[in-house]
Amino acid sequence: MGSGDPYGMPISHALASGMGGIRTAGDLVARMQLHRKMRLPEAKAYVAEKLHVGTRELSDEVTMRELREELDIGVLTSVPGAARGLEAKARIADLLGVTIPSVERLKRKMGGLG
């Protein structure tokens, strides 16, 4: 985005045109851009296929709130027992078929355990 006070910049852009982060599927679409260099239409189509939803539903707060809890990939509100932080990212890596560096590091740290 760019510099600016939180209300004037990130919040304004989030309301006007943002995907919605973990309120919706914003983090998932972002991952496909970051990890696979996918342009937006391709990234949305990829995530929508993995989630078995339409691309419009990726930014639907109600649909994604329920689906994220069902898939246990991290939800916005604080739900006891729901996957958090690295737990959620490990499940996202599996769901999207991408390599998430912090998850790979966790696996290395767990090497030989259990």
Partner: peptide, 22 residues
């Protein structure tokens, strides 16, 4: 006062030091 994109046309947000603004 404010406007927004058509639902479904939203885009991904990345940021430059936004956290420092808080």
């Amino acid at each position: 006062k404010i406007v927004g994109v058509v639902p479904g046309d939203e885009v991904v947000l990345t940021d430059d030091g936004s956290v420092n603004a808080l």
